[in-house]
Each structure stands twice: as C-alpha cells, then as structure tokens.
C-alpha cells in the first residue's frame, strides 16, 4: 500500500496565482508604456528601466536584511513600472531611482512585504518625489518633440489659464503629462483586459471615474475633460484596484472609489495642486482599514446589517 498524502479539502485549487495576476497586470500596462515611449522619447525607457531595477534591487536588499527569501513574484516590477508611469518624462534618472527605492523600502518592505503594506508603494514613491523635488516633478515635456521643451499639463493649463485641451488629444495621449497618464485609450485597453480576466473589480474604476464625472458636472465643470485629463484613468484602473491597499468587499470598493473621486475633484478645484489622483488614492488607502472593518457583506441567514459590530461592547 503506497503512503498517501492527506490534506484537508478542497483537493483542487484554481490555477490563478499571485504571479499570474502580477504578470497579467504587467501585460495590461504594455500599451500604456508603449504610448509613453512613443510620445516622449527614449529617455522614458531609461526612466522605466531605472525604476524597475531600483525597485527590484531595493526589495532584494531589504528582504536580505530582514532575513527572508526573495521571491520574484512580479510585484516589485509592477511597483517600479507604475511609479515610472506616473513620473514626468524628463525626470533625472537618479531621482527616479530614489523614488522607487523609497517606495519599496518604506511603503512595502517596512510593513512586511507583499500583502502587508497600507499604502500603494508606487503612489508613495510619487508623493515622496513630489514633496521632495517639487520643481523637477512639475517640469513637463512636450509630446513628440523628443527634447525638453517645458509645457503645462492639460490640467495645469485649465487651472492656471483656463484653457481646455481637445478631447481627441486627451484620449490619444498627444498632450504633456506623466509618462503613462496621457493616453486614456491605451490605459482603457489594459484596464478592460484586466476586468475581462476578472483580475480587477470593475466597481472601483467605475465608481471612481463616475464620481469625478458626476461631481464635475454638478459643480459646473466639463465632466469629460475632467475624466480624460490627468492621471485619473491610470489611477482608477491600476492604482485604485491594487489588491493590497484597497477594501476587500465589493461595497467597500465602491465606497473607496466614491471617496477617491470626491477628493480628486476637491483637490483639482480648490487644492494647491493641479492634479489630485495620487493623493486621493493615498488618502483612501488610509481609510481602507476602517472601511474593511465596518463594511461587511450580509451573512446568509442573518437579517440585520450590523455596522460597528465588534466595537459595540468594548466601551464597558
């Protein structure tokens, strides 16, 4: 009689794994990356490579310091790539490298690595760079010129000089801005791919973009301009859907999207920055633990929806 393996049920597992999801995200980012390189030239490629390498290297070193095994699961690559995509095309490479290193070291590894971070590492990297080198982070190059002619982003133009950019340019990406944020169409292709594969939930991007559109419309702004301009698409499809830092319930994801949408509009209209996608997601990341705690699905056979369940009896 052979020695058999005994393990608890279930005895079959789905073939979806962390690696598979991560590499699908990378594939979904290819159109965006290609657009970035096409519009802003070869320097962009260096920025992307620098970010990815720096992210991988930092993760390796940090895990070694922590005495853990380095696993090539693709998450560091995504962090590096996403960070690169939300940086200005002309950013000095050393800044990009520091940003990626900061993102991985403090936003990810300090919390215990993949799965434990509170904030989206790529966005922390971007926020860190914005706070550290505001000038470099707001120096935009003109698309398709391949030399550093500085211009303003569509949102900047709109905020400072009240000039609206044509929709077609916003959709195709023929405007200045961060590497990966300009072409709404390319992002949409990747996003739809991920939604179709069911790796991301459609609720987040839809509620996020929807909120921005509705709120912009309600406040007398051009909703289409507001959803196409800036990094809203990139944020909505790739950052606000990051598993680790967003709510785990479907309703929670809708709340997340709505909250982020409101913050984006508030920052764009009265804030100190022309764009607020990065900060809006970071702020909602901070709210995520609270959302997770209080927004729970209704349990089968349990009538009442109970909010504030566990804190009810702790006061006394």
């Amino acid at each position: 009689m052979p020695e058999l393996i005994v393990s608890p049920s279930p005895h079959i597992r789905s073939d979806v794994s962390i690696e598979k999801i991560m590499y699908s995200v990378i594939i979904a980012l290819i159109p965006t990356t290609a657009c970035g390189i096409y519009f802003f030239g070869v320097h962009v490629l260096y920025v992307i490579i620098t970010c990815i390498l720096s992210a991988l290297f930092t993760e390796y070193v940090a895990l070694r310091l922590m005495g853990r095994k380095f696993v090539m699961d693709g998450s560091a690559v995504i962090t590096g790539l996403l960070l690169a995509l939300c940086l200005p095309p002309g950013l000095p490479l050393w800044m990009a490298a520091i940003g990626a290193a900061f993102a991985i070291a403090f936003a990810k590894c300090a919390f215990g690595g993949l799965g434990h971070n509170i904030f989206n590492p790529a966005l922390i990297g971007r926020a860190f760079l914005t706070a550290s080198w505001p000038v470099a982070m707001t120096t935009w190059t003109k698309p398709l010129t391949y030399d550093a002619i500085t211009t303003a982003t569509p949102l900047g133009l709109w905020k400072m000089q009240n000039i609206a950019t044509p929709y077609i340019n916003l959709a195709l990406g023929n405007v200045s801005g961060c590497i990966g944020e300009t072409s709404a169409l390319a992002i949409l292709i990747g996003g739809v791919f991920l939604i179709a594969k069911r790796y991301i939930d459609w609720r987040t991007p839809v509620s996020y973009i929807g909120t921005v559109a509705v709120l912009a419309f309600a406040l007398g702004q051009d909703p289409l301009f507001h959803i196409l301009a800036g990094s809203l698409f990139l944020g909505a499809f790739f950052m606000a859907t990051d598993y680790v830092t967003t709510p785990i319930t479907r309703n929670g994801r809708i709340i997340f999207g709505v909250g982020a949408g409101v913050i984006v509009v508030v920052i764009r209209l009265i804030g100190g920055y022309p764009e607020g996608v990065c900060f809006s997601i970071l702020l909602m990341n901070a709210f995520t633990p609270l959302i997770d705690r209080h927004v729970r699905p209704r349990v089968y056979g349990v009538k009442r929806k109970r909010f504030f369940v566990s804190s009810a009896n702790e006061g006394d």
Binding site: F106, A110, S132, W133, P134, A136
Partner: peptide, 21 residues
C-alpha cells in the same frame, strides 16, 4: 537639489522612525 520633504512633517516622522528602527 536636496529633498524638500525632509523639512516637512513626513520627513520628521520618517527620520525618527529610521533612527528608532
């Protein structure tokens, strides 16, 4: 081009965090 962030609140928290760690 030094980091402006270090004069800001995040820089303060970060510095003490790193030193304590």
């Amino acid at each position: 081009s030094p980091s402006v962030m270090m004069t800001l609140p995040p820089g303060a928290f970060l510095t003490i965090a790193v030193i304590m760690a």
